[in-house]
Computed example of a mutant assay.
Amino acid sequence: MRKLAESVRETADEYRQGANRPLGGYVVAMTVFAGLAGLAGLAGAVAALRGTSSRRISPYDLILMTAGTHKLARLISKDSITSPLRMPFTRIAASALTAVAGADYLQLIYAKLQQSAED
């Protein structure tokens, strides 16, 4: 167990690259959120077993689930609070653009190209 904790600490220090990234606080925030989401899911399951919930999914619910899934995927892939999840698999390049800035830059280039094609 001590070896695992040391390995996680070393990986976190390497990931931080001397910057102030509160990875421990992010883990606590994600744990609290996961616990609350689990309780909400449990409450929904109990309601479904008692028969007090609707079995039909409305179009509004489908749109809401679609938007929520998109937002969750974007949060996991780009937001700083989920960086502890990405820490074992990624490294931060000091001179690289952030993913969001890079996407915005690509959209800007696309808009400029489209505008020049229209002229």
Rank of each mutant, 00 (worst) to 15 (best):
A29V: 06
L64Y: 11
L42N: 01
S77Q: 10
A111Q: 14
I81Y: 12
F89R: 00
A73K: 07
L75N: 05
A99I: 13
S80E: 12
F33A: 13
T69A: 15
T52C: 00
A40D: 11
A101Y: 04
S54C: 09
Y60S: 09
L39N: 02
I81L: 13
Y110H: 11
A99R: 06
I63W: 10
A94H: 07
A94V: 12
A43G: 05
V46R: 12
A73L: 14
L108N: 07
T69G: 09
Q107I: 03
A67G: 13
L106M: 13
A40C: 02
L64D: 13
A48T: 13
A111V: 11
K71L: 14
L62Y: 01
Q107E: 14
K71N: 09
S95Q: 10
P59E: 06
T82M: 09
I63L: 15
R91M: 08
R50P: 00
L64A: 12
G102V: 04
R50I: 05
D61P: 00
A34V: 02
A96S: 14
P84T: 01
A34N: 03
L64K: 05
I57M: 03
P59K: 03
R56V: 14
R74Y: 05
P59G: 03
R50G: 10
R74M: 11
A73E: 08
L42F: 13
S80Q: 13
H70R: 02
M65Y: 05
G35D: 02
A29D: 01
L106W: 10
Y60L: 14
P84G: 02
T82F: 10
D104S: 11
F89G: 04
A103W: 15
Q107R: 14
V46C: 05
M87W: 01
L36N: 03
T69C: 08
L39A: 13
S54R: 15
L49F: 09
I81F: 14
R91T: 15
G68C: 03
G51W: 05
R56G: 00
L108V: 09
R50W: 07
T69N: 02
D61F: 08
R86G: 02
T82K: 00
